[in-house]
Design a protein around this nucleic acid. Sequence first.
DNA 1: CATGAATGAGCATTCATTCAT
DNA 2: TATGAATGAATGCTCATTCAT
Lengths: 201, 201, 201, 201
Amino acid sequence: MVNTRTAAPTSRTDVASKTARRVADAAVSVVAREGFDLLSVRSVAREAGVSGGAVQHHFATRADLLLAAFAQTVESISARLAATELDGKVHEVLHRLCEQALPLDEERRREAIVWVTLSAAAASHPDLAAAHRRGLVAFTDLVADIIDSSHRGGEVPESVDPRAAAAVLVAVVDGLTLQGIVEESTDLDAVLRAALTAVLR
Amino acid sequence: MVNTRTAAPTSRTDVASKTARRVADAAVSVVAREGFDLLSVRSVAREAGVSGGAVQHHFATRADLLLAAFAQTVESISARLAATELDGKVHEVLHRLCEQALPLDEERRREAIVWVTLSAAAASHPDLAAAHRRGLVAFTDLVADIIDSSHRGGEVPESVDPRAAAAVLVAVVDGLTLQGIVEESTDLDAVLRAALTAVLR
Amino acid sequence: MVNTRTAAPTSRTDVASKTARRVADAAVSVVAREGFDLLSVRSVAREAGVSGGAVQHHFATRADLLLAAFAQTVESISARLAATELDGKVHEVLHRLCEQALPLDEERRREAIVWVTLSAAAASHPDLAAAHRRGLVAFTDLVADIIDSSHRGGEVPESVDPRAAAAVLVAVVDGLTLQGIVEESTDLDAVLRAALTAVLR
Amino acid sequence: MVNTRTAAPTSRTDVASKTARRVADAAVSVVAREGFDLLSVRSVAREAGVSGGAVQHHFATRADLLLAAFAQTVESISARLAATELDGKVHEVLHRLCEQALPLDEERRREAIVWVTLSAAAASHPDLAAAHRRGLVAFTDLVADIIDSSHRGGEVPESVDPRAAAAVLVAVVDGLTLQGIVEESTDLDAVLRAALTAVLR
DNA sequence: CATGAATGAGCATTCATTCAT
DNA sequence: TATGAATGAATGCTCATTCAT
């Protein structure tokens, strides 16, 4: 999101070399596919098709690698949220928005797994918490803003507190994300719709 | 819960030897305190105060150890839910119930971390998914039953579908769990109350 | 051979318990099927269908187990040699005899593998050399005796030295054994016949 | 032999780094001196005077290490055979040749032990069989060629089939190798001479 | 005789990291 | 920038062995 919107044709540090980007992508893939504990300098190097030394050239430690994978995932989800069409009825807009974060296709599933993994890891590795918070706040703010705006159109009763409602909705999305990555058959959409109905009333 | 019901008050070998139990407990502690990837046969042995060989005598592989830690956590949370007082107003009962699963004190925080970690790991290790599902289903069923019962008392409008409402509430609890283990300052209780109000209306 | 010939109906130590026998057999099977280095107290226990402790009850150390496997194999081959019909033309008798030691069916193949393995191991574990020597001497003596006897019948020229010829024949059998266990397709019989023809002339 | 012919006098990286060669040599030494089952990544590293990691850098698994030790031994024996002087009387030439493979000094004894060990191991690890076959075929072909050539000089009667005679001789050499590594006192030379006499007649 | 718990040492293997190129 | 060699410290796991039952 940051990059795509701010990028001059070829800004200086931009993507910190194409290789670095490729390596970070590979890290995301490894975490999503094989799990947190199988992420290693070696496995990422293999996935990215570069030498082990090359990975270390860009990310000195395994922790750096993890952080990069997480940051990139958060950024990627945020970008998708920011790109969502905001015109239309609140209910539909919020539905469209929340869907962006749920594991409803392969790409979103990859990101969802990394997101939950990040949360679990952040509990014991506080250095990761900042990336988590950034994503959480961005999402909550966006939802609250939308609800707030809808007050003016009379679409949502004044009795609905934007921040409280946003917090509930974001919790639902996080909960469904957590459930969805484990149980692929869960009907995430149905629960999301029920939550929207309950919250916006 | 399972054990206490199926066994005589104090059966002889009880839960597969005292050491096995102690080791599984230690595994939970290690995951909660140091994270998923620092759980090793050795770290658990150290935590449990037994030899590495003893750990392996009871849990042949690291995967077995993980599964045991997860199963024990799920069982522990379920036991706390099952022990919750169910008399009173629905709103309060459900509040009391959901609180049991949120990271509101050290013990629940430990369990919450393991729960989220389990979910993340289950995404790439399907053998763990069963433990997750067991916990999820038990919780959802309990919540749905409570809402269903409250229909008869007229406490909750008939328009509220027990299973749908339960799904939303459980998602909120899972989401708050995920957020709560990362960000200790989050006001989980407020969001839970808001969700209850919205859902039971 | 020793046991079958010397056995009183039920001598005292005889087979040192049925379990011991079964364990030694299992050891032979493991070496033959999975190789020397996969023989362990555990693998043998698994193969024999008894507990690890039971194996150790009869064979205190892994070395004992190896020795037992080897001794039993040597004894088994010797028994087969001793049971061979010795009437007929020298050429045919010796052919019949040598065949007993070659890996021409599954049982003999098992024994052959153990025999070669024993030889290789004996090179660095002199404790095993005695078992090897016992088998080698028994075989050589038998062959030499047969050739010697045939001198009296004029079947074999006096110029053929029984012990020298026996040594060559036994070497051929050992060499074919070594080749036969690796390369199942080798025509061991043809080479054996060629050797007999050359040596008895 | 292979290397020296295919490379420029002193190519840059030569035989896959000097360390790799040193490690493979060390592996041969360990197998010869301490036996198959005491070959470990660690023991080889100690013998070669490098770190355990260095060994694994060049030979990823223990199996690779074994294969390298075996291949190197086969190559080494083949090189010695190929370097043998082929002029002179058949009997003497073949005697000289066969001697190269028998454990008549320390170096040949080392190689002989590895050769027999290889054969035993190849019975249960078919990946090793190729190395065995390579050595066996090279030796047999060489012997058969020599006998064939001697037909033209009338030195050996036409009735002697080169391939059959070669097979018998090679079997004798293999058998004597097997016996010689166990029983150092065996008079290998006498048996070899007797075999040559019998076969070339 | 036999079992299963427990120990501690050993194994192959993978790892993060450093360094020379 | 990137590679590959090398290190040394983990890791999971198997092992022989001891001991109480």
